[in-house]
Design a protein around this nucleic acid. Structure first.
Lengths: 297, 297
DNA sequence: TATTCTATTTTGTCTAGGACAAAATGTGTT
DNA sequence: AACACATTTTGTCCTAGACAAAATAGAATA
């Protein structure tokens, strides 16, 4: 049989790209892209190539680039943009943090899907550096490196998940070993609805734990009102929320404001993660951390 | 100032209930519920009471009840339904599995938000039962008990997250202790996009581990194509996917079929979780497990 | 009585094209 | 360089109609 390219409904594309139906339709109207085929019923059917392209586009959009420009690029221009972006990433990496051999070892283990090698590298680095420097010098750079490798197309989504899973479990085991009695300040960690990345939260928890501070992790996708209730019921001093670069940039400001309004004023709010790096004006009573070196420990 | 009830846009309601905009609008047209207010712009604004009610409705819908009946109930009828359902749950619980003191202890720890008490109970049960029976007699019943308690309104969402987080970490630590070399069959575990619950996967992994079988956890929200690629690259024999009762029942069948079509035929597919309990006809080459006692170990 | 087949109803997802406000950007002034 | 104001861009929301897949009810059969 002929290798027929798979097609997807607008609902599936919405789910797999995180771009809403309405947005997909209006982009088509305004910019002429994406221009899906139609089935017998007149419904849009997106070929896989368009789905993949939309996923790539999203990464640029999440970085703050504007649809009006991005969607009107020719294919050649888009490829040029991709290369330019890859180049800049390589540059910023080599300038700000030359990748240590251990980071490279981890990356290689992920690429080869070798769980044991990855665990060994993590264990070694942890022993060598201690937890604080393990996070600053290995875990955080690794997260960035894996994210970049995915952006470049060097690794697949499932490999990123694999890395995240192994790293999370490693951190949680070490956190468990450090667990002690109640201490102050007490921190509650979670992410808002739609935000699935919690590795940043685990790294924060580990960082806090190695300074003797306890934290409560609630995991991903916590509605604002629940986060607020939990903060009060657990009687915490600080609520920490993380936003990955995949979080819709347009709604971050609102969501943080909503959280600040909902949580009692005497409880601090910390926000962190790639998603808030570019965010300038924060509501009063909200602090931003995009680097583990900034944490006031 | 007057205690003005908070209102929500249709987008927020979609996000917080998992019911799509289109569905909310057409329910309003067909059944006259929910009937939101309108703002100056003519947009639907849902009072909090309606949002909460929709969340309750969803639970019944997920159990297979039909909108046409459910949405036409009067308030009194709905309350009667809730009580009847609570009664049935209590009955099925007391008949099928009288809650052991340890399960009750865990539930109490969750209600009191006492991490240490919960960990102590888990550790004790694990020592006493061994891993296999720990899962069958404590972990699985606890998950059900916590879910039911949430359904009854006895505990909040954040407490359920808290329980999930603690249980997951406990299991992962024990899995790590049992980790050994490569063994066959090798199992890949994950959930499909939109499915955020992974506790079932961790319990499965633990169950496998205590029988000497290795598994690779990829975590939540893995697109079908990625799951398929991962299965081939990791060279696994079985792919295990879990569906919670929160997974949209209408799309489960399709999604499983899609997965089966995508994964090579010589790799088995296991599906599990509350979401597939009622599912009858499965595609060829797909096995269903809704009980840890069924696992062929 | 239980099972299978067929007709009907129910239900969710999709369509088009218009409207509007919040955010981002550009421009001029201090 | 910092601020205020005008313009453009952008995503979300609206109505009302269409259709197929799934679920149910009814009839016919074993």
């Amino acid at each position: 049989m002929p290798a027929q390219e798979e097609t997807f409904s607008i609902g599936t594309v919405e789910r797999d790209t995180g771009i809403s139906r309405d947005t997909l339709r209006i982009w088509e109207r305004r910019y002429g892209y994406p221009q899906p085929l139609r089935n017998a019923k007149g419904e849009r059917i997106y070929p896989e190539s368009q789905l993949r392209h939309l996923q790539k586009l999203r990464r640029f959009l999440d970085q703050g680039m504007r649809p009006g420009k991005l969607l009107r690029l020719t294919e050649a221009e888009f490829i040029a943009l991709e290369e330019k972006s890859a180049g800049e990433q390589a540059l910023s990496l080599s300038v700000s943090a030359p990748e240590s051999p251990l980071v490279l070892a981890c990356l290689a283990a992920v690429q080869q899907r070798d769980e044991q090698a990855l665990l060994d590298a993590l264990g070694l680095a942890h022993q060598q550096y201690g937890m604080a420097d393990f996070i600053r010098q290995l875990a955080a750079p690794c997260v960035t490196a894996v994210g970049d490798a995915w952006a470049r197309g060097d690794i697949e989504v499932y490999q990123e998940h694999f890395f995240t899973q192994v790293m999370t479990q490693f951190l949680n085991i070490e956190i468990a070993k450090m667990r002690n009695g109640v201490s102050r300040p007490l921190v509650l960690l979670g992410s808002l609805p739609g935000e699935l990345h919690t590795l940043g939260l685990s790294m924060t928890a580990a960082m806090l734990a190695c300074h003797g501070l306890a934290s409560i992790q609630l995991g991903a996708s916590m509605p604002v009102d629940q986060l607020s209730k939990a903060a009060q019921e657990f009687n915490v001093d600080i609520v920490g929320v993380s936003f990955s670069s995949a979080y819709p940039y347009n709604s971050i400001r609102n969501d943080i404001q909503e959280l600040r309004d909902s949580v009692p004023a005497d409880i601090e709010i910390w926000v962190g993660g790639e998603g808030v790096r570019k965010l300038r004006k924060l509501p009063a009573g909200v602090s931003k951390f995009t680097d583990f070196k900034q944490l006031p420990l």
